[in-house]
Design a protein around this nucleic acid. Structure first.
Lengths: 144, 144
DNA sequence: GATAATATATGCAAATAACATCTACATAGT
DNA sequence: ACTATGTAGATGTTATTTGCATATATTATC
């Protein structure tokens, strides 16, 4: 999906097959930020990325630049050089309609993943908590 | 963390740094299943893994076996050969206390990730929905 | 005795990630 | 003028991870 295609589910539906790892969720956050800001260049996005990241991990600028080029190759964003305003030339990116659609697909997947994670955590928590209770009971018994 | 250590946050706290990709969440689900079932062998776990998976992706048995050996190396599980009951020998795994603690750390991280995902999806949804509204408004105007 | 199912494990190519490095321009300080 | 610093984009290298194929061994079934 990160490359526009999952070879297991094809295009039948958005899936999280190759989404667990590809660029550590840089892609959806980048799409989101572009949607939010209208247009932006990579270096700038790199600064906002951190606060919207889905994990604790630092986002490698190299990964961001590569993701942007990849997104462009796939037709999800367009770019043009911006020479003007002082400093080195910057590449201005903007979302395409396909990009918006792709973001929407990511949202389906991420919502589903978040749901699965929450259910998992709840289930696992119960298991562990019941354990703690046992220990407390044991301790109480021991103290009598 | 999957290997028991994150070289960015060290051991100060559970983090999701290397959790976006390592074995596609096979590790926490494996720990959970072992906690749930008391003891189990790899092939068996492979069958339950699917229904508790956090993503759509099929879990490769090779990855599961490798994860189990890794967990053992890190002291999170122990194993012993089970010759008895018909068929090829199976390796019976069980959680250690360190394994339970490790699962608890995963829960912290996964809860946090799920939260981040939900917030992200909500934010992004608003953006896209407001877009749709604009389109609807435009369409309405157009139809007048 | 051939075949299938169970069970664990390894080998290898390809995909990904982490980290370092490179180019280039501009500005500020000395 | 020279140097350092910050901005901006991009590539190269190496290590890790993944996906898929394959190997090995035991039992059950035909």
């Amino acid at each position: 999906m990160a490359r526009g295609f999952c070879h297991r589910h094809g295009n039948e539906r958005p899936c999280s097959c190759s989404m667990g790892n590809i660029y550590r969720y840089v892609e959806p956050v980048t799409l989101y930020l572009l949607k939010l800001k209208g247009r932006a260049y990579g270096y700038e996005l790199g600064n906002y990325l951190r606060e919207h990241a889905l994990t604790d991990s630092e986002v490698d600028r190299a990964a961001l630049y590569r993701t942007l080029r990849q997104l462009e190759t796939n037709g999800f964003v367009t770019s043009e050089w911006d020479i003007g305003g002082g400093g080195p030339a910057r590449r201005l990116y903007a979302l395409t309609q396909a990009g918006v659609d792709h973001l929407a697909e990511w949202l389906v997947v991420l919502r589903q993943m978040a749901g699965a994670m929450n259910r998992f955590v709840d289930d696992a928590d119960k298991l562990i908590v019941s354990d703690t209770k046992d220990l407390q009971t044991a301790a109480t018994v021991e103290n009598e």
